[in-house]
Amino acid sequence: MLSRVADSLYWMSRYLERAEHTARTLDVHLTLMLDQFHESAPRRWHRLLATLSIDDSPEATEFDAQAVTHLLTVDNSNMASILSCVASARENARQIRDSISSEMFEQINRLYHHVKSTSFESIKTHGHSDFTSRIVEGSALFQGVTGSTIARGEGYQFIQIGKHLERSLMTIAMLKAYSEFYLSADGADEADSHVGHLDLVALLRCSSAFEAYCRVHTATLRKTNILEFLLLDRDFPHSVAFSVNNLFAALHSVGREGRGLDTGRTDRMIGRLQAQLTYANIEEVMDRGVIEFLDEVTSQLEGIHGGIQDIFIAYAIESELGA
């Protein structure tokens, strides 16, 4: 597979994952705000932006539901808006449309035309949820046709790599933004106040994890359980450990198809991270410091991103022809 194509598949997938996550997170927060005490609103908008790793400028304090909705949906000056993400995903898809199935392109193209033709006025008129659910559905449809129309070759693996890398980074950013809720100084494990409870439900819902969590731990929201579920659960598709396992499998599969090229570097990095998440225990993580742990995982994921670029995409020609 052409290096440029692999790169575009990877970014297409990352952008689309990000658009979906942003849509879900926005929807959850706008719903959450309906149950808000007014005075805590600015802090929550800040947290929403932190959840999405968007640097909030000082004027962020001025945010209200409308401004945030605009910023995250169809604001084309915001590189992280849903519009920008879908447009970037589609632009990447357009550059490699010979390498994905027609069904995949048509799906992402439809989604793009839908987002592009949606005005902020119409979001205000019809409510945000039509819009956000269309994004989540669009992404699901794309995953669906991807699953059923493309061979499980390298291209598919690069799509998986992009998706799971983005997803794990987004989940970690979200866990960091919400740390005040499960790292309370009082040490009480069960959510006590109403507000804290709602926020924890929101945290789970941003990852579509609420129902899955309840099946495992019942509706009793224990902070350590939530953290463990989103970080270390092996079976839930939005947990960091699950994404890293998939990342491991996809990278391994790509490396195998390759030449005798040195994939050792990414193999080592992803292997170490996977082992760490597989054998970690939540109490240890809490003891060592959750934030430190999350930061460390983030920097390992970023290292893997760099390794992929160096090995598969932007390698030096001299090293190849030397032999």
Binding site: M1, L2, S3, R4, A6, E257, G258, I317, L321
Partner: peptide, 17 residues
Amino acid sequence: DLVVHNKIVYMRTTAGL
């Protein structure tokens, strides 16, 4: 995506040239 070396044309792929 293409490079020429010793008058031979190669494409740059994830598995090398």
